[in-house]
Amino acid sequence: MKRLLNISNSIPAVVLFAAIMLAGCRSGVKKAGKDTDTLSVTGANAAIYENIKQAEKIFYTLPSPLESAMLIKSAGALFDDNLLNPIENARNYNTNRSMALNLGIYTTDLSFASLYDQTQLIINYMNVAKQMADGLGILDAISEEDIAKLEENIHNTEVIMDIISQTYLNSNSYLEDNGQPAIAAMVLAGGWLEGLYISTQLVDMKDFNSNKLVGRIIDQKLSVDILIGLLSGSKGHPAIDDLIGQVEKVKTVFDKITLKTSPVRPEYDQASNTTVLKSEVSADFSPEVFRELSETVAGIRSTLIK
């Protein structure tokens, strides 16, 4: 009888655990509330749109460290190693929160250095990113082989970008697949904030109106809500709740920028087999709002790297 009771007590626990584990296969799942959608789809689109149901999984995707670094470089900005988080700070990061945020930060610094052929910095920052990944228990995110391959190809930007992309993928996928979406979100948030920090610090106010980098910073307004959506999937986690509060401050400043975009017109270019999404955009970004944004981001970043 006692054994029977034990079994009957254990079975619901097993069923519950199994349910949690199966749900865990889709970490970060968020049902799309269809009733909150205000549909404004007309014509031929309407029929296709009607077939879109509630999503089983929603991905919120931020520009990756490589993409952020590429955006900075393509805007014509110069490299400044004083903007990177010093590798000596790594010894201060002992919590999952600080290691996750700084894995993202160091990966952006690494990407930035790699696009400007800063050979010694590339090796140093890859090592410190490995230190963060190892600290988080991410198995083989950055292996010794990756470091060796990096050193062998230190002058080959293409190979270095591939290695960075692979190691970042390894970290993200490990955290997502092992039921740590909050840690994964912190890595992504740290990387994005570092990209925004470097961009804002590189703007020369003397050519504010003609600086291409200013346009890139305005573009980041489009990603703030995505970041909040990403972090909200792990709401209730103390470090995430704190981070949402910080990102809300950035959003408050971005909300002062009015972005007007004309309807998007897809045009297919047969020669390149590429679709060009044509549209025009205008924004009012004053130097005052820029300074406020720059100071806000710098303030948040200083708390993340200390």
């Binding site: 799309a32 149901k53 995707t61 692979q166 190691t167 993928l169 995505i226 959506g229």
Partner: peptide, 20 residues
């Protein structure tokens, strides 16, 4: 870009992705 988006879906199911 280094980002990872993969999930397990069944027939008839959907996923969404938001990106700039």
């Amino acid at each position: 870009d280094g980002n990872y988006h993969a999930t397990i879906l069944s027939e008839g199911e959907e996923a969404e992705l938001y990106k700039t």
